[in-house]
Simulated assay, not measured.
Amino acid sequence: MEYRLDYAAIGRRIRKARKERGLTQARLGDLCGVTGAHIGHIETDNGKLSLSVLVRIANALDVSLDELVCDSLATGKPVYEDELREILAQASTRQVRLITELARVVLRDEFGTGESEEE
């Protein structure tokens, strides 16, 4: 199976991490040795980034590379599990119930059962 980098998803994750840390695009750019405009292009999927810039961004944001590229990894499940925990922690009881039901529907539709393929 061929995997390709999902640059749009990487950009969204960079933006989310940057905002969580209270950094501007210009400040993140300064920390990474690129312009704030380049960070903006990366975040909006209007420009590609090199591996070295990706590593510098990950270091500046204090995140792992797998957190940024998990949409492109076959082994990205732990990152998604962490994201789901964060979502559930912020959700009301009603929202948790709806999310749980949605997960059941997705599993049933995707795999034809109530269980995932890996089980």
Rank of each mutant, 00 (worst) to 15 (best):
L28T: 07
A26D: 14
K48P: 01
I14E: 05
C32G: 10
R15Y: 05
V69Y: 03
E2W: 05
L31T: 03
G29E: 07
S116D: 08
C70S: 15
T35H: 02
G36K: 04
V63E: 10
I10K: 02
Y7A: 12
N46T: 09
L49T: 13
L65Q: 09
E110A: 13
N46F: 06
R56E: 09
L49Y: 08
R85I: 04
Y7C: 06
A9M: 12
S92P: 12
D71C: 11
L49Q: 14
E118S: 15
L65V: 14
E20R: 10
I39Q: 11
E86N: 03
H41P: 01
G22S: 09
V63W: 02
L28E: 06
L107H: 05
H41Y: 15
E20N: 14
R12W: 01
D30W: 01
Y80N: 00
L54K: 08
S116R: 08
P78R: 09
E115N: 11
A9P: 03
D30F: 05
V96I: 14
A89V: 00
A74F: 09
R4Q: 14
L49D: 03
A8K: 15
L65P: 07
A103V: 10
V69P: 02
T93N: 12
R13V: 00
K48M: 11
D45C: 11
L28I: 03
V34N: 06
E2N: 09
E67N: 01
R94E: 15
A37Q: 12
Y80W: 11
R94C: 02
L23R: 05
S92H: 11
R94F: 08
H38S: 01
V53N: 13
K77Y: 05
Q25K: 15
R108A: 10
V105A: 11
V96H: 06
A103Q: 10
D109V: 09
R85N: 07
L65G: 06
G11E: 12
V53L: 07
R27I: 04
E118N: 12
V55H: 11
T75I: 13
D45I: 05
L84S: 01
G29K: 07
A26W: 04
L31P: 04
D62I: 03
L84D: 01
N46H: 15
R4I: 10
P78F: 10
T93E: 15
L65S: 08
G40W: 06
S116I: 03
D109E: 15
N46D: 13
